[in-house]
Every structure is written in C-alpha cells, then in structure tokens.
Simulated assay, not measured.
Amino acid sequence: MKKSFKTSLIAFALTSVLAACSQTTDTSTVTMAAATSQFIEVTDANFAHAETARNYRNWVALGANKQITHMRNLPPRGKDAPTVQMNDDTLYSVVIAEAENGHIKFSIPKTDVYLAVQVVTEGGHGQQYVVGEGDYDLPVETDFAFLIYRTGVEKGIEAARAAQDKISDDTFKFNTYSVQNYNYDEVEEWVSKLTAETQGAVFTYTFPRTSDGITDRHQWNLENANGWGGSSPEVNVANLYSNSVMLDGSKCLSTTFEDPESKYFTSITPYDSARYLMPGVKHVSSNTWTVNSDKTVTVSFNCGADAVNNIDTKGLDFSFTMRYYGVSQKVIDGKINPEKTVK
C-alpha cells in the first residue's frame, strides 16, 4: 500500500496558499482587465459548477489533486476553512481525481470508527455516499470527482488519525484536474448573497444526487451556497442536514426533541452568519450527549456550563445545523425538527 500523504491543516489565511497555485508566465504580464475578460461569467445556470470549482480549487491548493490530503485536526474556524459549513464531528480526507470510463474506484479500510466516503461531482452533486469497509467501483457523471472521507472522532482524535492512516489512494488517477477559470471573488459574492437569503427561515437541504434530479435551480443554488458537499438523504446510509434561523447569542435558548435514532450518530453544530465554524465553539453529538429521563434530548445554547448539553457561542449570534448520520425514516418524514422548536 502506498503511504498516504499526511498534512495538518492549521488556521492560516487560505489566500496565501491559493496564491501559490496561480498561473503565471515568464514572457508576459497579464493586465487585470485582460484577465477579467477571460473569466467565465457566473450565472444562475452555472453557479453550482462555479461554487464546486471554488471548493476544488481550495483543495488543489492543499494538494488533493496529487495525493490524498488529510486534515489531522477538526476544521479551522472562520474563512480559513477551505469549504463552507464544514462538519465539526469528523476528520476530513480529500481526493480530487479523474474518473475513468465514467467510474471512480476507491477502498474503505476496516476500522473501529465511523468512516464514510462521499463522491461529489463537478456539478456539486454528492452522487455517491457509502459507509464501511469494502472496495467500490461507482459511476460518476462528470470527468472529475471530489472524494470526501469522513472519519469519526467518537473514540478520540488519535483513533481517527489511525483510521486515516489506513486509507489508500493507489487507485486514483491524479494530476490531471485544472482549476476552472472563474473570478472567485465574484463566486464569493454570489455565495454571500445566496446565504443571506436563507437566514430568515429554517432551511432544509435536498441535495439531489445527479444533475437530472434538480427540480428547482434556485433551491439548488441556495443549497450549494449554504452547505456545499452535503449528502442526499438515504435511510440508514447517508445523511440529512437542516439549518435553524439566525439566533440571538446573548440569550439562553434550548430545544428538546425525540431521539432521532440515526444509525451512526446525530450532531448539532453552530455557525456564524457566513456559514463558517465559530472560534472556540464546540458541537454536541449523540456520541456524548445527556439524555433526559423521558428519553428525549435537550440541547442548550448560551445557558451556562451547568445547562444540559450546552453550546456556548461566546455571546455571538449563530444558527445551528442538525446532521443525522445514517438518517432514520422518522427524521426524513419530518417528525423531528429541533431547529423549529428552539426558544
């Protein structure tokens, strides 16, 4: 087995890393006006592709188009993170590889922690989501695929890192992806505009698996802006995500709900208004939460260290995302809605 590339992501200005990836020539200097004229225009029709290209680009800067790139710690807070709304309950390992004959091949090693692989197309679709040990040969509808390995930290960070070390990247065709020529400042402006649109109401993701599953282009754009790389819900396999509205961080708030009975685990993670993780703020998950005597679960926000399952956002306004890993049918049916009952 080829030794996996190991890298630690620390909180640093991502722009300095991305600058190293920019293309220059020795014979000429391209003016800003000329460069701008060559950009692909961002539109409603191609926003999902543009946002996907932005995420691919961010991970290219970290080497994921050359070999598997491991995050050895939980994601950076704020915009130092390479992807919007990263989950705070697993470690990430990422591959960007060329599909061969319309398929992507990979393996998941045997481990004693949660380990899943999601295959994200160039259109932003999580076309495949698989959990558990095995060799996989799966179709993908675009020329390149972005593979997200999510490794659970339920047994501690060292156990998660040990599981990452078992992942092989021998089956991938690397070094052929080219960063797409969008103006990524413009893409970021679209992201900010679309994210702001959803802050006044509870937002639930659908994440169609393939391009032909899109029934509402604007909804799909909102999903990519708020949580690129999410999975299409599948009972007992893939995940369902939903966001709360923005909440007042100066108040003690809580939500109580029936056990979601996710096959793997459930988590509740707070985010800032731009949908990034918050400095010094931790998530709560079913791996560790306290259950009430009636078997319901209460999660508190800014209610003090003694409050049950308290999440302290340091007085900052926030929204939170529910993640159901291996979602149950009752959650898919809308019978559990913690994001709608917080008060």
Score class of each variant (00 low, 15 high):
Ala11Phe: 10
Ser286Gly: 14
Gln23Asn: 10
Gln164Phe: 10
Ala19Leu: 05
Thr290Ile: 15
Leu277Gly: 11
Ala33Thr: 08
Cys303Ala: 04
Val284Met: 04
Lys343Trp: 14
His283Gly: 05
Asp135Lys: 07
Phe47Ser: 02
Thr206Asp: 11
Tyr271His: 00
Tyr184Glu: 02
Ser4Gly: 08
Val153Asp: 00
Ser267Glu: 02
Phe12Asn: 12
Val153Cys: 02
Val202Ser: 00
Ser232Lys: 06
Thr25Lys: 10
Gly156Leu: 09
Thr43Asn: 09
Val281Ile: 07
Ser211Ile: 13
Asn236Lys: 08
Tyr114Ile: 13
Glu339Ser: 05
Thr290Gln: 11
Ser319His: 10
Cys21Glu: 15
Ala45Tyr: 07
Tyr136Ser: 00
Gly326Ile: 04
Val291Cys: 15
Asn46Cys: 04
Leu194Gln: 07
Lys166His: 04
Val179Phe: 03
Thr206Tyr: 05
Thr288His: 15
Gly249Phe: 08
Thr210Gly: 07
Gly315Asp: 13
Glu223Met: 02
Arg217Ser: 10
Asn73Val: 06
Asp216Phe: 01
Pro260Gln: 11
His70Asn: 11
Val130Cys: 15
Leu222Met: 12
Val299Cys: 00
Glu158Met: 11
Ser231Ile: 08
Glu141Trp: 02
Asn183Glu: 14
Ser285Met: 06
Val30Glu: 09
Pro76Ser: 08
Ser232Cys: 09
Val331Cys: 06
Ala34Asp: 14
Lys3Gln: 07
Val202Gln: 00
Val308Ala: 08
